[in-house]
């Protein structure tokens, strides 16, 4: 009997598989396809303090081995999420929730954290710092160690739950951002967010996305994500949730050998709503193939 259990900074998960924020909404849509209680946890739709309509359509584009999206954080806002979405989600999902939180100022993050952490099912606060800082000239928080550290500190000041900073890969040196977050008190890290990309429609001679640029996700980014998780886990001593193109049981195991304690599955859910279920059911077979008895035994390769 293979042991799929893992521990994420003391939070026990039945298995390391977590649908990534933005690919599972507030659970409702995926729950029509399978019982989500087989998951390790669920990271719900990136939520901001105020409701957001997101960007104009088209918001998605085909890419080699993946896709672009420029959804633009469409969400109902933290108050609505706490009052309506989370109670509904909890009516059918009883595993740990990860609250994915976005903001455009430190104040935004702090207020959204204060609202969403009140829910007892929320076990981890995952802070998305890929958004532009409206007080920082529009530069993304996650691209500057000082801004990343400032958000981390601001959130940590009010957080009553573990804070995982979700890092952007669109940086020169991911390790310096990771260190800045950990030095500022982050309890863990989630990486990576999407890679900034673009497609141009040759018939219309225009960008495919109305927003012109968007985030690249899917299997094409897996090697980049794996490399960043490996570099970061070699440099910091907090638990890391690895994500980026994970699409199979082998990818989950590979991500854990790169140093991840748990793994999020993103774009794969959009291609196959049963992706997480299939991965979880396939993990014992893959563990057998690679001689792994307990996933928690996996140690980062050097």
């Amino acid at each position: 009997m293979k042991d799929l259990k893992v521990s994420l900074g003391g939070i026990a998960l039945d298995n390391p598989v977590i649908p990534a924020s933005g690919t599972c909404g507030f659970g409702k849509e995926l729950s029509g396809w399978y019982d989500l209680n087989i998951l390790g946890a669920l990271s719900f739709k990136g939520t901001t303090i105020a409701p957001r309509d997101g960007n104009a359509a088209p918001r998605v584009a085909e890419c080699p081995a993946g896709m672009l999206n420029s959804v633009g954080l469409q969400n109902p806002g933290a108050y609505h999420a706490a009052a309506y979405e989370l109670p509904e989600l909890k009516s059918f999902f009883h595993k740990p929730l990860i609250a994915n939180i976005s903001g455009f100022s430190e104040k935004d993050y702090v207020e959204a954290v204060e609202i969403l952490q009140r829910d007892s099912a929320v076990r981890i606060l995952e802070i998305n710092i890929s958004c532009p800082n409206v007080h920082g000239g529009g530069m993304a928080f996650g691209t500057d160690p000082k801004m990343a550290a400032a958000v981390t500190r601001a959130v940590k000041d009010v957080a009553e739950k573990p804070v995982y900073m979700k890092l952007s890969p669109n940086v020169t040196d991911i390790v310096s951002i990771a260190r800045a977050c950990v030095d500022a008190g982050a309890d863990g890290l989630s990486l990576i967010n999407t890679l900034l990309g673009m497609r141009i429609d040759l018939k219309r001679k225009k960008p495919v996305l109305a927003n012109k640029v968007g985030g690249y996700s899917g299997p094409g980014i897996f090697p980049v994500a794996l490399r960043m998780v490996w570099q970061v886990t070699g440099a910091v001593d907090v638990p890391v949730i690895g994500m980026g193109g994970v699409s199979s049981a082998e990818d989950v195991i590979e991500m854990m050998y790169a140093g991840a304690k748990a793994v999020q599955v993103g774009a794969a859910n959009l291609i196959d709503p049963l992706a997480c279920k299939k991965i979880i059911e396939d993990l014992p077979r893959a563990m057998e193939e690679y001689g792994i008895e307990r996933l928690s035994d996996i140690r980062r390769v050097e």
Binding site: T23, G25, E29, K45, A57, R59, V60, L270, P273
Partner: peptide
Amino acid sequence: EERMACGFGACMGCSVP
């Protein structure tokens, strides 16, 4: 019609006002 990713409501890729 709209460009879609998932097709079952999870990703908000095809939302319109």
